[in-house]
Design a protein around this nucleic acid. Sequence first.
DNA 1: TTAAATCCTTGGGGTAGCACAAAGGTCAAA
DNA 2: TTTGACCTTTGTGCTACCCCAAGGATTTAA
Lengths: 145, 145
Amino acid sequence: MKVSELALAGGITAETVRHYTREGLLHPRRDPANGYQVYDGADVSKLCFIQCLRSLGCSLSEIRGVLDASLQKNVPCPETYRFLADRQPSVHARIQELETLVVRLEQTLEAWQAMPGDVPSGHQVSRLVENLKQPAIIQAGMSPL
Amino acid sequence: MKVSELALAGGITAETVRHYTREGLLHPRRDPANGYQVYDGADVSKLCFIQCLRSLGCSLSEIRGVLDASLQKNVPCPETYRFLADRQPSVHARIQELETLVVRLEQTLEAWQAMPGDVPSGHQVSRLVENLKQPAIIQAGMSPL
DNA sequence: TTAAATCCTTGGGGTAGCACAAAGGTCAAA
DNA sequence: TTTGACCTTTGTGCTACCCCAAGGATTTAA
């Protein structure tokens, strides 16, 4: 299969597939006839795995590491286990963070809606948004997870 | 207060404060004596607000928009309400996504641990990680939330 | 069969949200 | 007064992409 076919299967763009390939996450073979990059079914499931890890906050180089390790030993190795296990706390923390924020957000919006008048104005409203100005639960650098 | 003091108060780096200032999110006054950027208490709560919105997945330019609108009318305006309200679904979706992924992750790790032998190897393990290769629940472009 | 539309390639540039380093000015304590 | 920790601006680098253009290959439709 060609780039855009793999991209379609993985729900991403061909550009991103090319990017992953450039970064050494995918290893297509070359069609000698036309120089096209050729992927197979294994690359589709690899791509799903990549997307899971991306969504769990892993960088491309980390993912490359996991992929390379699994590939070398031809099986998911202890390093992969460690790596995945280490991810857990930060994912839980991120979920917690988002849940806290969404509650704050909802409180703010509800209070806003409950206010008399179509277009709430004045320092009434100012106090509502104060809710969203509370000190962040966010730890440095964790947000983009 | 100076950059690094504000940074400390907000739990971020001075570089990031400077970045936000360059991007027009913060508007410090200048100490004419030494050219230092001077911030006040309002900037601290502004910074908390910024971090909340960042954590909810807003870009700096979006945040600048909200901040400018609130500043112009001297009060959080309907646009701000709309903006915040529009955020809700994607935050819920992201929480859902992370929860699904974390369950998969835990299943994978539990199954891994339950396996006989200290260093699980062979195609036994391969099948475990297959769990993480299921088609992504992820919608294009939503992950970095 | 030939022309048009749609792929593919490489290459370069742009983006956000920072981090880091250089070169110089400032400030408070010893 | 000197040291060391701060501040300033400027500029470069990073990650994980996206978008565009030039030029070749392939597919499709007349």
